[in-house]
Design a protein around this nucleic acid. Structure first.
Length: 332
DNA sequence: CATCGATGTTGAG
DNA sequence: TCAACCTCGATGG
């Protein structure tokens, strides 16, 4: 489910709440029992996010690699030092659910946008808790610690005060430092990891020599990290670029423009927790778009609807097993 | 309540 | 090229 921005936000969450602490690890579901046993009792020492992958380091060069795939998620519970930009009004944080106590949680407006720009002294706020039928209303009390396991939890990481549950990941594996390096080496540049100017050169050089359609190249994690189906469609529309044009035929300045736009959209996504691809909307327009739900992109998920610019019907087609949305006139 | 589809990747054929 | 993986909100009856 998450594209690159979510993974970076989750990594922040780990940095604030897990890194620097000893964790108790378990695999309630059982499918990562051996790995959990290896982690159990070690301190988390660092976290890295590259593209859609997250790497969590533990004592003695033990790394955990997690890729959430399409429906994976981390649920945080207990005492959570929230990212100040996290939208928590409804208990959601990107792909991460939160329950329990949040520290330094900013006030959010109804649209889940951060309405505070400065961060005051840490304070405690109870976040909305999704109560199951069996719970007794004691959420946040000692009676709830550790939180009951709900559903299939591949991996549970528990500190004294914070619980992180991993469910439904595509990948969850232990790696050596060399294996981590090898995994990362296969990934294209990530604007939040690599030097942005160098990333632009790498991305441009690769795209400009490939016969593959630009619409496919943007989804190729070895070409550029972190872009998924939503950002692909939106980046191409914003560039007014036909998705079928071979990479090598896309003008140099257009390729560079797409990279620079990705740098911008990723940054906005990480800071806001929203996939804001219509960032020229005013706050009021944005709130209205959010309220209408599903009405916040230029072309993504808008098949058959009129293009916001020219009114032409947005087209959807299947490309490499994924839906590709675009405007045949604006992106001719 | 059953079914569908999804912001993703891998590996078999 | 396609099924499998795995979860859950949206949708329809």
């Amino acid at each position: 489910m998450p594209e690159g921005h979510s993974v970076h936000r989750i990594a922040r969450q780990f940095d604030r709440n897990i890194v620097g602490r000893v964790v108790a690890a378990s695999s309630p579901q059982g499918r990562f029992a051996e790995g959990a046993e290896m982690i159990d009792g070690r301190a988390a020492t660092a976290v890295r996010a590259v593209g859609k992958q997250m790497f969590l380091e533990f004592d003695d060069d033990l790394w955990l690699r997690v890729h959430l795939g399409m429906y994976g998620a981390w649920d945080f519970a207990g005492e959570v030092v929230a990212d100040p930009t996290i939208a928590s009004a409804n208990g959601r944080m990107g792909q991460t659910n939160q329950r329990g106590t949040v520290i330094d949680d900013p006030v959010m407006d109804a649209a889940g946008e951060n309405s505070l720009t400065s961060i005051g002294a840490p304070r405690r706020t109870r976040v909305h808790v999704r109560m199951s039928e069996q719970t007794t209303g004691l959420a946040g009390d000692e009676a709830d610690w550790p939180p009951p396991v709900v559903g299939q939890v591949r991996l549970r990481l528990l500190t004294d005060v914070t619980c992180a549950d991993l469910r439904g990941p595509t990948a969850c594996a232990l790696q050596t430092p060399d294996e981590v390096s090898a995994t990362i080496a296969k990934l294209g540049p990530d604007p939040l990891v690599d030097d942005v100017a160098r990333g632009e050169e790498e991305f441009t050089a690769v795209v400009r020599r490939k016969p593959t359609a630009i619409g496919l190249l943007l989804m190729d994690q070895s070409v550029v990290s972190g872009i998924g189906n939503v950002y692909r469609a939106e980046l191409l529309f914003r560039a007014r670029q036909n998705p079928h044009t071979p990479g090598r035929e896309v003008p140099d300045d257009v390729v560079r423009g797409i990279w620079r736009d990705w740098v911008r959209l990723l940054s906005i996504g990480v800071e806001s927790g929203q996939m804001m691809t219509m960032d020229d909307l005013s706050p009021a327009q944005w709130r209205a778009a959010m309220a209408r739900r599903d009405d916040r992109h230029w072309v993504y998920h808008r098949a058959g609807l009129p293009c916001r610019v020219c009114g032409t019907s947005i087209v959807v087609e299947e490309a490499a097993g994924r839906k590709l949305y675009w405007c045949p006139k604006c992106q001719a």
